[in-house]
Each structure stands twice: as structure tokens, then as C-alpha cells.
């Protein structure tokens, strides 16, 4: 089978696609969920970024969404197998309710990530690869450069609106 660095990079790509697709599908770049997210979005826009990408950065910071769901589902599968992943989805839902958020994106992301990680462990990947891969994926969104990542997310948001058609 593949080496561990190659497996971590493939897992990072899969996690990135999973959480960005679910976040963009559930309209997280559309508006700030709480007023703290709006404040972060305005500061990111003031620093040269895009407002819709800033809304998504703020929403990821201020409530557990699909990225947190992916990470905790990978942790659950690593510690306790398939039931652990579903238990992690329940915990993400409770965490969303604590942070004044409806919690559809987080729960959906956790459940899809549970089946993704469990399916990939049958193929030959380890669940720890997905935990490290999710940390790399969140680093590319939030940790390298807010300007470039917010512009990238804004481009994906435009693409989603053109495909599905309902502009808010």
C-alpha cells in the first residue's frame, strides 16, 4: 500500500472536498450566523479579502460546522469504530446548539465524514491519516493567507449560485 505521507495528502484532499462542499451547499458564505462572524467578515474585507469568503471564515470560527464534524467523526472512527463516528455527530449537534446555530451543516458533515472515513479504512487507509489530513485542510483555509482563501471561497460561492440558481 502507499506510504504514510502520501496517504495523509490524499486524506487531506478528500477532507477538503467534503467540508468545503457541504459548507458551500448549506449557504455558510451567504451571511454571518452570529454577529461575531459578521465582525470577522468585515475585518477580513478591510484587510483586502472578499466579504462572502470572510463570512465563511467567521462561521467556521464561531460555531462548529462541517469542518469540526469531519474532524470529530475521524476521531470517533479512530477511537471506537463506526458507532464512535455517529456518537461524534450527536456531540457536534449539541455543540451547535450551544453556539446559537441551527446545526444542519455540522451534523450532515459529521455523518457523511463518518461513512467516508469508515469506507476508506476498509480500503487500506488508517483513521489517523484522516485526522492529520483534516488539520492540514483547515490550515489551508484559515491559516495560510486570509486574502487568498476568502477569494477562493467567493469563487466557489459564485459557482454554486450559478449551478443551483437561488441567489439570496
Amino acid at each position: 500500500m502507499l506510504d504514510e505521507p502520501a496517504r495523509i495528502l490524499i486524506a487531506a484532499a478528500l477532507c477538503w472536498i467534503n467540508f468545503v462542499a457541504i459548507d458551500v451547499f448549506f449557504k455558510l458564505p451567504g451571511s454571518g450566523g452570529v454577529c461575531g462572524a459578521t465582525a470577522i467578515a468585515e475585518e477580513v474585507e478591510k484587510g483586502g479579502g472578499n466579504l462572502h469568503g470572510g463570512f465563511m471564515l467567521g462561521n467556521i470560527v464561531s460555531s462548529p460546522d462541517a469542518s469540526a464534524g469531519t474532524l470529530l467523526a475521524a476521531c470517533g472512527v479512530y477511537c471506537a469504530g463506526l458507532p464512535g463516528g455517529l456518537f461524534a455527530a450527536l456531540l457536534v449537534y449539541i455543540g451547535n446548539r450551544i453556539c446559537y446555530d441551527p446545526g444542519y451543516a455540522g451534523t450532515t458533515g459529521a455523518i457523511t465524514a463518518t461513512f467516508l472515513v469508515y469506507g476508506m479504512t476498509q480500503v487500506g487507509f488508517a483513521a489517523s491519516d484522516f485526522i492529520a489530513g483534516m488539520v492540514i485542510a483547515i490550515l489551508t483555509i484559515q491559516g495560510i493567507s486570509h486574502v487568498h482563501s476568502s477569494r477562493l471561497i467567493a469563487r466557489l460561492w459564485d459557482l454554486r449560485n450559478r449551478l443551483l440558481g437561488d441567489h439570496p
Partner: peptide, 26 residues
């Protein structure tokens, strides 16, 4: 999960207080 939710709640409280008030918009 407890650590992650606690840390997120802390960031949420800091951002909300910085922008003034714990109100919801949207």
C-alpha cells in the same frame, strides 16, 4: 468534543463582545 466546543464557544463570546452585544442577526 468537549475541548473543541469549549474553545469554539470562547471564540464566539470574544467575537460577539468585540462587535457589541450577544444578539443574533440573520
Amino acid at each position: 468534543a468537549a475541548f473543541f466546543v469549549g474553545s469554539t464557544f470562547e471564540s464566539n463570546a470574544i467575537a460577539s463582545t468585540w462587535s457589541g452585544g450577544m444578539k443574533r442577526n440573520g
